[in-house]
Write a protein that binds this DNA or RNA. Structure first.
Length: 261
DNA sequence: ATGTCCTAACTATTAGGA
């Protein structure tokens, strides 16, 4: 079972590129973020032709999340209570695998926060509090949450390293919200498997950041222990941050994990 | 140079991204 997360930075602009990746990597379940697509024009038929059903929580212009699945799934949640004025950023489905394993799959597009001085930074922290409450209210033994968290967990996860400490994405307050999920029993699948590797999942489009290795690891798959124990591989798919012929990549790479479930 | 790139939007400039 291959589970993936990808901030696509505009689903409609990325559709041909997404096809290439789906056909190459053959993921079973994919959490997508930053659709920038209204629900009424989401290309369901397009993904059905590739073997995927889609559940969508989108909006016009910004944000938006979706789950693509090759296996049966049912919608459990769209959006966070009291946070919907901050955009369409969460969706949860219950998935049943061919082996009969049932688990919850949540994907999130966490707020950026803009700058420490901007009102959106405080709202980002509040949004994380709501996410934590949602998580506790919907506790199940097998649950994976993936997405764009817009937080650099440790110095190794940002190109600026220790120089970044205290700036946005690297603050104690933001990191504490990630730690709260660890305290609730969730594990970062990539960091758990590769404790010392520096790999990034996002690079700025500007200034040749990708080639200068100026990136951040802000896209994660977090899972409860039964799913951690079933994990056999975790890949940050940086090949798919590159331009492919005339197709522009997202500024985020896909991240996926393989699980025996 | 509050630079650079990319997307979506009342198609031209602006907002948002991280």
């Amino acid at each position: 079972m291959r589970l993936a997360t990808w901030n696509v930075n505009g689903l409609r602009a990325r559709l041909d590129y997404i096809d290439l990746w789906l056909q190459d990597r053959q993921p079973d379940i994919v959490g997508l973020q930053e659709l920038k697509t209204p629900d009424d024009v989401f290309p369901h038929e397009h993904f059905e032709a590739l073997g995927y059903q889609a559940l969508v929580h989108g909006q016009k212009s910004w944000n938006g999340v979706a789950i693509l699945a090759k296996h049966p799934m049912t919608l459990k949640q769209q959006g966070l209570q009291d946070q919907e004025d901050f955009g369409a950023r969460l969706i949860t489905a219950e998935v049943t695998t061919p082996k009969g394993t049932v688990f919850d799959f949540t994907t999130v597009y966490c707020p950026n926060g803009k700058t420490l001085e901007h009102a959106d930074f405080g709202r980002k922290l509040e949004w994380y509090k709501s996410l934590n409450a949602y998580w506790q209210q919907n506790a199940v033994a097998k649950h994976l949450i993936c997405g764009d968290f817009n937080i650099v967990p440790e110095a190794i996860d940002g190109w600026r390293g220790e120089q970044g400490e205290g700036t946005i994405f690297y603050t104690k307050e933001e990191r504490q919200h990630l730690q709260d999920f660890v305290d609730l029993g969730l594990t970062d699948l990539f960091r758990n498997r590769y404790p010392d590797r520096q790999e990034f999942s996002w690079w700025d489009y500007r200034g040749g950041a990708f080639h200068r290795k100026h990136g951040l690891r802000i896209d994660f798959l977090l899972a409860t222990q039964p799913l951690v124990d079933a994990t056999t591989e975790v890949i940050i798919d940086r090949d798919y941050r590159r331009k492919i012929e005339d197709l522009t990549a997202s500024d985020h790479a896909p991240v996926f994990a393989d699980l025996n479930i």
